[in-house]
Design a protein around this nucleic acid. Structure first.
Lengths: 235, 235
DNA sequence: ACCTGAACACCGTTCAAGT
DNA sequence: ACCTGAACACCGTTCAAGT
C-alpha cells in the first residue's frame, strides 16, 4: 500500500516541465535564438527548465551531443523539393540558399556542423536528397559524395561566419544588420586607404571593389563557382 | 640616490621572461601546438610565463585579440612565390595547399579566421598577392576580391574541420592520424549500412564511395571546383 | 607604464545520495 | 530510471593596489 509523500518531501526542487531530450533541445534552441550561442550553456538550459545542470545528463551525454541534436533539429526546417536531375543546378542552388537562410537564423549552430559529420535523421534526409540529385544528373557516386561534402562545408562555413558578425553586432548594441554591415565595410575601406600604396597597390587601388557586395552576394558568388565546377565535371 | 630593493621585496612574483605582446603570442602558439586549442587559455599562457592572468592585459586587450595575433603570426609562415598570372591556377592551387598544410599544423587557429576579417600584416601580404595574381590574370577587381574572399573561407573552414578531427583523435588517445581516419570511415560506413535501403537508396547503395578519400583528396576536389569556376568566369 | 593578488561571475562534468 | 545538491577543476576579465 502506497503512502502519499509528505509535503516537506515534495518541497524538493522539481523541473516545471517533464524533462526529456526533446524539451532540452527545444530549450537550448530557444536560448540560441534569443540570446545568441555565446549564451548557450548547460547551466542556462537547466535554469530555464527550473532545475540544476546535473539533471540534463540523464538525457544528453554532454554539451557536444546537445549541440548536434539542435543542429539536426534545425536541418529539419529545410524544405526539399522532389529531385529533378534535369535542373539540378537550380535545385542545388535553391537548397543552398534556403539552408543558409535557415542556418543563419540560429546563431552559430553552424559551427557544430563545420566540425562534425552530421548523422542525425535530418542530415541523412538532406544527404540522400543531394546524392539522388547529383547521381541522377550523371555524376559518379564518388564525385557526388565529394561534391555533397564540399557544398555542405561551404554552406555551414558561411553561416558560421555570418553568425560571428551577428554576435559582434549584438555585442556592439547595434540592431539594424544593414547599418552594421555598412559601417563594417567603411571601416575596412578606411583602413585599406591608410596602407602604403607601393607595397599594397591592389588593396589600396581597388578599395571600392574590395568592400563591395553584401554577405548574400559573396555567398552566391562562391556557390556559383562550385556549381560551375560541378558542371564542368559532368561534361 | 637609489637604494637597492631589499630581498623580501623582490620575493614578489616576477615573470621569468620580460612580458611583451610577442612573447605572449609565441607562448600562446606553443600551447596551441603542443596541447591543442582547447588548452589555450589566458590563464595557461600566464602560467607558462610564470605570472598571473591579469598581467597579460597590459599587452593584449582580450583573448580575441590574442587569437588574431596568433593567426597572423601563423600566416607569416606561408611562402608566396613571385606572382605569375600566366599560371595563376597552378600558383593559386599551390598557395591553397600550403596554407592548409600550415594552418592544419596549428590546431584550430583557423577558427579565428573563419569568423574574422583578418587585417594583420601577414593577412594583408597574402591578400595583396592573391589580388595581384587574379587581376593580373584578367579578372575584374570586384570578382577577384570575391574570389579571394571565398577561397580564404574555404581554406580556413577545411583547416578548422580538420583540426576538430585532430582534437577528437587526441581526446580518444589515438596517435596515428591514418589509423584514426580509417576507423572513422569504417564507423560511418557501418552506420550507413544499417539504414533502411528503401528510404536511403543512395546512402546505402554507395557506402564505399561515400566514405572514400581522405581529407586531402576532398580538399583538392573542392579546390578544383572553385578554380574551375574561376576559369569559366575568365572566359 | 607595467605588473600583481584577489575577487567576480561564470563554465562543463562527476558523484554520492535520494526518490 | 531519473533527478538532485554539492563539489571539482576550470574559465575571462576587472580592479584597487603596488612598484
Amino acid at each position: 500500500m502506497t503512502v502519499p509523500t509528505p509535503p516537506w518531501r515534495t518541497a524538493r526542487k522539481r523541473a516545471k516541465t517533464q524533462l526529456s531530450q526533446d524539451v532540452i533541445v527545444e530549450t537550448g534552441l530557444r536560448i540560441l535564438v534569443t540570446d545568441g550561442s555565446e549564451a548557450l550553456s548547460m547551466r542556462r538550459v537547466a535554469q530555464a527548465l527550473d532545475t540544476g545542470p546535473a539533471s540534463l545528463y540523464a538525457h544528453v551525454s554532454n554539451k557536444e551531443e546537445l549541440l548536434e541534436l539542435i543542429f539536426d533539429r534545425v536541418l529539419g526546417e529545410i524544405h526539399l523539393p522532389e529531385p529533378d536531375p534535369a535542373q539540378w543546378q537550380r535545385q542545388l542552388r535553391g537548397y543552398a540558399m534556403e539552408a543558409l537562410r535557415i542556418l543563419a537564423q540560429y546563431g552559430d549552430v553552424a559551427r557544430i556542423a563545420v566540425a562534425n559529420v552530421p548523422t542525425g535523421p535530418n542530415a541523412l534526409r538532406v544527404g540522400e536528397w543531394m546524392m539522388g540529385l547529383l547521381v541522377g544528373a550523371g555524376m559518379s557516386p564518388r564525385e557526388a559524395s565529394f561534391a555533397v561534402d564540399r557544398l555542405a562545408l561551404y554552406i555551414t562555413a558561411d553561416a558560421f561566419e555570418g553568425s560571428q558578425h551577428f554576435a559582434r553586432m549584438r555585442a556592439a548594441g547595434v540592431t539594424d544588420p544593414g547599418a552594421y554591415m555598412e559601417e563594417f565595410a567603411t571601416r575596412i575601406a578606411d583602413y585599406y586607404r591608410t596602407l602604403p600604396a607601393d607595397r599594397f597597390p591592389h588593396l589600396t587601388g581597388y578599395v571600392e571593389e574590395m568592400t563591395a557586395g553584401d554577405g548574400d552576394a559573396r555567398f552566391e558568388f562562391g556557390l556559383d563557382l562550385l556549381i560551375t565546377g560541378m558542371e564542368a565535371r559532368l561534361r
